[in-house]
């Protein structure tokens, strides 16, 4: 079973139904035990970085998630689930993240509309398992005002252009995370969820 972590941030239903649609066993959970027992963790979420960390902390889920990642189980972060992997975010002053990957979460400082909202392309630097059978420069749905600036360029798997080139996907060993929303990206997005399911089976 794959654990979709519910910590009160945004639309989990689409993630759950998306996995269901492609025949992957994934369940919404919000307790440490279920995360421990799961074969993999999915952390979705939209909204504020600060609230995300606070809610995870209030539910005592930070440690179980970090442990699951450290044990080598596959992790899929979506949007906030990507951002909180990093050291800190400049949203609301400075706020600490999980610090599993070194780097910062920064706001768009560009002459374009913010949030970056809509369909944009992801150009691959390397192909993580979730990108199996997906074309380079495919469109995905984005909605965010902040993006990650990894300190180790080696973790960057995909980049997207919006005023600047920013990191839209990272991959390091068992960790893969996207700034875009696979669960909102129609066929291509569902393909990502299916690929993640396959990867978990093999892991």
């Amino acid at each position: 079973m794959i654990a979709i972590v519910d910590y009160g941030m945004g639309n989990l239903r689409s993630v759950e139904k998306g996995f269901q649609k492609v025949g992957v066993d994934a369940q919404v959970v919000s307790d440490a035990k279920s995360i421990e027992n799961a074969r993999a963790v999915v952390l979705p979420g939209v909204g504020a970085f600060r609230d995300c960390m606070r809610n995870l902390d209030a539910l005592s889920l930070i440690e179980p998630i970090a442990k699951s990642i450290a044990s080598g189980k596959p992790y899929l972060g979506i949007c906030l689930g990507l951002q909180i992997l990093f050291t800190e975010s400049e949203e609301f002053g400075n706020f600490k993240g999980l610090d599993i990957l070194p780097g910062k979460v920064v706001r768009f400082r560009i002459d374009l509309k913010v949030p970056h909202m809509g369909w944009n392309t992801v150009s691959l630097l390397k192909r993580p398992p979730i990108f199996e059978n997906i074309l380079d420069n495919s469109y995905f749905y984005f909605v965010h005002s902040y993006f990650v600036a990894p300190a180790e360029p080696a973790v960057i798997a995909g980049m997207t252009e919006y005023g600047i080139n920013f990191t839209s996907m990272i991959w390091k060993e068992n960790i893969v995370a996207t700034q875009f929303h696979p669960e909102k990206s129609q066929e291509t997005g569902l393909r990502i969820l299916r690929n993640f399911g396959d990867w978990v089976k093999k892991a």
Partner: peptide, 29 residues
């Protein structure tokens, strides 16, 4: 939301924070 995996907006008659929460929980974005 069970069937269609694209961004979904709902408008009309939204009066309270509970109305919004219910819609988001149901699968609207």
């Amino acid at each position: 939301a069970e069937d269609v995996f694209m961004p979904l907006t709902v408008g009309g008659g939204i009066r309270t924070l509970d109305d919004i929460r219910d819609l988001l929980k149901a699968g609207c974005d």
